[in-house]
């Protein structure tokens, strides 16, 4: 696709805990171009949200910090920008949609007021009155029905799907080049999920913004994303285009994730689940993080970290990190 808007290179984020510096994002690299959607997939604790927080530089303080790596927004490296400079990037260059719409709006102001607020941050010095028309436009753009009336509603008077649309309106208020959506549909019910995903796609088509979509739902990734990275234990274990990865999942973890998606046409007694727990955060980890849960694990898996190699699909961009790539599956 087109030149990348956001490029993350060898990002390493650590949390300074009393037990030592624990890497939560470890040597993560990816890029996303205009009009492109990247899925970041992984279970809880895999480091996908921490990656998003690192890009926005809103890591938990004072323990979180970016240890090394680059986050290139077009040509500028966001790592090492001053607080004022990064504040200008937030909202204007990179917008973000959080997981839970019920808690991500300020309960004491009307939603119109909060969209105006977002517009004001991006256009300092403009009066609230002059922005009012744009608020209604924005709400219409995110398919809030009856927007002229709804601007005066308080968040608690709206449904979850409606609130998440408002959060979306706030995210696009600054016309950002990149939108990071951190599990935006997890708190919505299924019918609304689909509508919301379609909305995101429409916005993308209209504005050409890049989307980073964080989720654990591979069904969504298949529908919405162009490419994906699979994260486990803070590392990218597999990456590639959606077609490549779905055709030939090369890391046992990706394979297991795909197996965990229930299918409508197959009748099963028990749903598939990956045995064991995701790795606990600790400073000294050896070998492949997935080894304890991996059905193919060998000696070497617990001793040495696997390097990235070409994935099984043979595609140009398909990469995976596993010692057992040549396995019989």
């Amino acid at each position: 696709m087109s030149a990348s808007v956001l490029q993350v290179k060898n990002l390493r984020t650590v949390l300074d805990l009393s037990s030592g510096s624990v890497p939560v994002v470890d040597d993560v690299s990816f890029d996303v171009g205009a009009g492109e959607t990247l899925g970041i997939v992984g279970e809880s604790g895999s480091g996908k949200s921490m990656t998003a927080l690192s890009i926005m530089q809103v890591l938990p303080q004072p323990i979180g910090r970016i240890e090394s790596g680059e986050i290139l927004l077009e040509q500028t490296d966001l790592v090492g920008l001053s607080d004022e400079e990064i504040a200008k990037v937030r909202g204007r260059e990179i917008g973000m949609i959080l997981q839970d719409p019920h808690t991500s709006l300020n309960p004491v102001f009307t939603v119109g007021n909060q969209v105006i607020e977002a517009l004001q941050i991006n256009n300092p010095g403009t009066s609230r009155k002059s922005l009012f028309g744009r608020v209604v436009d924005l709400l219409k753009k995110v398919n809030v029905a009856d927007a002229e009336r709804r601007v005066h509603a308080y968040p608690h008077q709206m449904s979850g799907g409606m609130k998440q649309r408002v959060v979306g309106a706030i995210a696009i208020a600054g016309a950002p080049k990149v939108i990071i959506a951190d599990e935006p549909t997890t708190a919505l019910d299924v019918t609304i999920q689909l509508q919301y995903l379609e909305l995101l796609r429409d916005i993308q088509e209209e504005t050409g913004t890049a989307i980073i979509f964080i989720t654990h739902d591979l069904g969504i990734v298949a529908n919405l994303c162009h490419k994906l990275v699979v994260m486990y234990g803070g590392k990218i274990v597999e990456s590639g285009t959606v077609a490549e990865v779905f055709r030939a999942p090369s890391h046992p973890y990706t394979e297991a994730l795909l197996k965990s998606v229930p299918s409508v046409d197959q009748k099963v007694d028990r749903l598939y689940a990956i045995e064991g727990q995701p790795p606990a955060l600790s400073a000294d980890r050896k070998g492949c993080s997935f080894a304890p849960r991996c059905p193919y694990a060998r000696d070497i898996c617990t001793r040495e970290v696997p390097q990235q190699e070409a994935g099984l699909s043979g595609g140009d961009t398909h990469l995976a990190s596993c010692w057992n790539m040549g396995r019989d599956t």
Partner: peptide, 26 residues
């Protein structure tokens, strides 16, 4: 620590604005 304060921060709100518009009114 509430989500809407985090959301305000990722929308580019300054500390003063967060205190004035998000914390104080609540």
């Amino acid at each position: 620590e509430r989500d809407f304060v985090a959301r305000a921060r990722v929308a580019g709100a300054s500390d003063i604005r967060i205190l004035r518009k998000y914390i104080l009114p609540n």
